[in-house]
């Protein structure tokens, strides 16, 4: 955490290397979170780019509060996702898993991964928006429950309840998929 604080401090002074490290540490998590939320690769890329550019532009005013830097990035990403759904009242047109091309050279694991993601995406679309948000922040963002609660503006108890109900729903939905 201390190392991350130092990186943030250096990045605030326009240290390119420090910001690049923060980018490398957080890129995958932010991209996964957004991908799960929008379910479309092109949109996910656009939005990930917006999030990091916004972070770069605002990092000078960021105040360290002994929470992971990623929590701040997720708040930016969360706001972008909300804006995205406000502006576009449509669902994704190109599914995320379309880009996970399967060919003759793909390993068995790659095929299984693709199938798991397909199932997860289909199932997660049937969750409530709040349940989806908890799953995205907790599993894609790897955030602790306290940070998820802060980002969503809810109590930790409420988030734990949402998390539980989401996993129960996923279990049910994935079982149904399996039996179809």
């Amino acid at each position: 955490m201390q190392e991350e604080q130092s990186l943030v401090h250096q990045a605030q002074k326009c240290n390119q290397e420090a910001f690049a490290k923060l980018y490398e540490q957080n890129f995958d998590k932010i991209y996964r979170y957004i991908s799960l939320k929008v379910g479309n690769n092109t949109e996910a890329e656009d939005m990930t780019q917006q999030v990091f550019i916004k972070a770069l532009q605002s990092i000078s005013s960021y105040k360290w509060k002994d929470v992971p830097f990623s929590a701040w990035l997720f708040r930016i990403a969360h706001n972008h996702v909300i804006d995205y759904y406000r502006k576009q009242s449509r669902q994704s047109t190109a599914p995320l898993y379309d880009y996970m091309a399967i060919d003759n050279c793909s390993t068995e694991k790659a095929i299984e991964d693709k199938e798991d993601i397909e199932k997860l995406l289909i199932a997660s679309k049937k969750l409530t928006p709040a349940q989806q948000e908890v799953i995205s922040l907790r599993f894609a963002g790897e955030l602790p429950i306290a940070e998820v609660a802060r980002i969503m503006g809810k109590t930790q108890g409420a988030v734990k309840a949402l998390q539980h109900s989401a996993i129960v729903a996923l279990r049910k939905l994935m079982m149904v998929e399996k039996n179809v």
Partner: peptide
């Protein structure tokens, strides 16, 4: 939860997009 976590972890951005965004930043 583990299945969900594994599925989520296998979502990866295109490497050229990641490199391009880094360059832009």
């Amino acid at each position: 939860s583990i299945k969900t976590q594994n599925a989520v972890s296998s979502v990866e951005a295109r490497p050229d997009f990641k490199a391009r965004l880094k360059y832009i930043l």
